[in-house]
Amino acid sequence: MTTNSIPADGDPRRLLADARALARQVRIDQRMTWAALLVLGTTTLLAIPFDWFGMQVDCHPDGGCTFTRQGMLYYWPAAMVLAYTAIAVSYLRAARARGIGARVLPYAITGAVTTVVFPAAWLAVHLYFQSHPYPDSPLPYGLLVLDRLVMPWGLIGVALLVLAWLERNLALLLFTAGYLALVLLALPMNSGFGPPHFGLRAGMAVPQLIAGLVLLLGAAAFARAARRR
């Protein structure tokens, strides 16, 4: 005989479907997506005054200006460590209160790596331009996008991608794809924009304000969806 009798309770399709449903429920119970977006959105908005007051602008007689965003360098590495720690702790506490554990290690590692990437990229660019002249022509578009990716707003998107993978969260994946498209392709995060009378500092603040508000709106939407569940 090649067929074994399997009790109704052991029907393979039902067992597999039940196991998948339970695994999915656990993942949903572990989610604190809104908290992660709230922390990252708040961190982004808090960066604006640091960037504003920490920016060194030197304008030359020919009308051209050079600027260094020192405030970002001092603010973001510390802010990222605090933000990712706060997110990891909130995930652990919420999961524990619900009676389950949480997978935060990959997210913590991503947070640590992205925290290092930004100052490392800044240092590399700083050292490069100490021995090389600033280019007269605009940078190629690909380099501009790469520059935006290693900036804190791009790295937030990378961390959110990891979170979406950890949570198997399609909604967060779609939100993150939209967010990354915004900060990498649409918003001039590294040059700023706005009406001519805005000036350099206000022009730099506008895209940061938009990115922060998008994250906070995402937090509100995910919180609402979580409450409905």
Partner: peptide, 12 residues
Amino acid sequence: TIAHEARRVEFG
């Protein structure tokens, strides 16, 4: 399945 997904799970 739950213990695998949750890493650690409470009796309740």
